[in-house]
């Protein structure tokens, strides 16, 4: 028996919004430590890794490890049927071929349940090595989303250059060129507005705007985003989900032909 309950359906809607543009389907691996999903996007360029810890759920029970392959388009249809303030419970029997989403209104007067067929997905899991990154940038997630959106107008690729002074995002194309520089903030009223840089070595890397823009769909999950970079290895774009876990996106830098 698997059962996981979240007080608010909003968080699950936001998680789905953060992955459904990149993935058509995904396997949710459930164990007593929580729920994990790892999948490459359809073109195998980026990797999405979602971790939801069991202690972040209002209720969590997982008697036996189960892997639930879900069509994310179908899951999105079902989640549309939940109000933001509904409690959501995900349930499945051991070895079941369906999963049930149950939504309860705050006053418990409306209860709906939606059963969805599970899929058998033959997905390979990738082992992600622990890496010490040359640069780790933390910045407001909305600011990062804005920069990715703005610079994507100029080129399909964006250069990210990080030094201890700050981080610079650049793009150039037929129209001209664009540069956005962010300095490390000295003092801020709110922690969410801070830009901070931990640098061992400066790095300059080129990334596809299209994927960075897809990652920023996770912005509603967290006020801050963390970019971890080293030469010649994939960038990690991480959004923490308060008290519940995180979503990480991996994207390899572009290389000269």
């Amino acid at each position: 028996m698997f059962e996981a309950r979240l007080i608010s359906a909003t968080i699950l809607k936001k998680i789905l919004d953060a992955i459904k543009d990149l993935l058509n389907e995904g396997t949710f691996d459930c164990s007593d430590s929580g729920i994990q999903l790892q999948a490459m996007d359809n073109s195998h360029v980026s990797l999405v890794s979602l971790t939801l810890r069991s202690d972040g759920f209002d209720k969590f029970r997982c008697d036996r490890n189960i892997s639930m392959g879900m069509n994310l388009g179908s899951m999105a249809k079902i989640l549309k049927c939940a109000n933001n303030d509904d409690t959501v419970t995900i349930k499945a029997q051991d070895n079941a071929d369906t999963v049930t989403f149950m939504f309860e209104s705050p006053n418990h007067e409306k209860v709906s349940d939606y059963e969805m067929k599970l899929m058998n997905l033959d997905q390979e899991h990738l082992g992600i090595p622990e890496t010490d990154y040359s640069c780790v940038v933390r910045m407001p997630s909305m600011e990062f989303a804005r920069i990715c959106r703005d610079l994507a107008q100029f080129s399909e690729s964006m250069l990210i250059c990080c030094t201890k002074e700050g981080v610079k995002f650049s793009a150039s194309g037929d129209v001209g060129s664009a540069n956005v520089k962010l300095a490390q903030t000295s003092s801020v009223d709110k922690e969410e507005e801070a830009v901070s840089i931990e640098m061992q070595e400066p790095v300059t890397l080129t990334f596809a705007c299209r994927y960075l823009n897809a990652f920023t769909k996770a912005s509603p999950l967290s006020g801050q985003v963390q970019l971890s970079m080293s030469a010649d290895v994939p960038l990690v774009v991480e959004y923490r989900i308060q008290d519940l876990g995180h979503i990480r996106y991996y994207l390899a830098p572009k290389i000269e032909d």
């Binding site: 195998h44 360029v45 980026s46 990738l126 082992g127 090595p129 690729s157 290895v233 390899a252």
Partner: peptide, 13 residues
């Protein structure tokens, strides 16, 4: 510029 696949960087488990 070329875009390498992410699979090239991580080992298959």
């Amino acid at each position: 510029m070329a875009q390498p696949s992410i699979a090239a960087f991580f080992n298959t488990r």
